[in-house]
Design a binder for these strands. Structure first.
Lengths: 173, 173
DNA sequence: TGCCGTTTGTCCAAACATTAGACACACTTG
DNA sequence: CAAGTGTGTCTAATGTTTGGACAAACGGCA
């Protein structure tokens, strides 16, 4: 029960119920919404560890545009909460676009309960990885320096630090 | 012609030729390989701005396992070079796995030349975004502090800095 | 309510990092 | 060769980080 609260957003009550039963034993709390309208307020109130978001809410529209829109909106406002998308209309282009828009994962209906649980746990675990500041810094420095073909003057300017400081950071690798 | 060298890896000579013609006007140099075996050495020699990698090399095997393996290997060794995957056997699960394994994008055969060019350019542009060190730092600090529910002592410990330093960093936001 | 462990806000002085500026040297390129 | 650029090194001033210390605030708990 170490995985906190999860928010499930889907316009189909049957699916909401099924998912609730499936996840009840794994998460401390399963909050459901049958429309994404109130998603932002609900997230602010509940502070869920992850969000499971359906992609289609308008009947007859199955392009996933609406789910994509909500994905972007939620991800922009809460970039630290992993969002897993779920849809019946699997499509490679849509999945790729979703992941590039910040989705943590993408599962297709009908889903496998164990896989859904694994995917959600994975998403939460990934987000939880905390890196010390100096490690983050040296990785970034290495990357920028690389992009500048080793030119320290340019790299330092791009990083917003002085040439000597970069020199020292690199020397003590 | 500002997009540098691109490396194309595909076991089908016809596709290699077609891609070469398509990309010749956009990239300074198009290097091709008909097998991923020599990929790592070739990348080290050519230092390409992006890599276009096919997913299937063994005839009759179309699970994409081999492409995935090479994606991981290349991405581990050259994390700063965007890798775009291309496959004839489009499959949502495979695409999701590829993106989560570090692929920059995922396109399906038969491809649209303009789209392929756009995707490759996008991938290169995305990788080129350089963030100043202090911005990177304050974003990370905010994120970790958030995950610790505002507890500065814990956050400082996780970040590998002293409590006072974190205090000052937050004060001068 | 009062006690206790924890966290915060604040201070200090020592250690350390960063800065601009300077200068000789090495390297490309015309 | 000469000009232009980047490197490696130094200095002195300035700014940051550190552990340690301490009173005040907070939250749980009996």
């Amino acid at each position: 029960m170490k995985y906190g609260t999860i928010l499930v957003i889907d316009d189909n009550p049957a699916i909401l119920t099924a998912v609730k039963i499936c996840l009840a034993g794994v998460f401390e709390r399963v909050v459901t919404l049958n429309s994404p309208e109130k998603a932002l307020v609900t997230i602010a109130q509940e502070n869920p560890a992850a969000i499971l978001l359906d992609m289609n809410f308008s009947l007859g529209v199955n392009s996933g545009q609406e789910g994509m829109m909500w994905l972007s909106a939620i991800h922009r406002k809460f970039p630290d909460i992993p969002i897993v998308l779920i849809t019946a209309y699997a499509d490679v282009k849509l999945a790729v676009r979703a992941l590039k828009n910040g989705a943590a994962d993408f599962v297709t209906k009908p889903w496998d309960n164990d896989e859904l649980i694994r995917v959600l746990k994975d998403a939460i675990d990934k987000m939880g990885e905390i890196v010390p500041l100096d490690q983050l810094e040296s990785e970034h420095v290495r990357k920028v320096l690389n992009k500048c073909d080793g030119n320290m003057k340019k790299a330092a300017a791009l990083l917003g630090i002085s040439r000597q400081t970069l020199y020292n950071k690199v020397k003590n690798d």
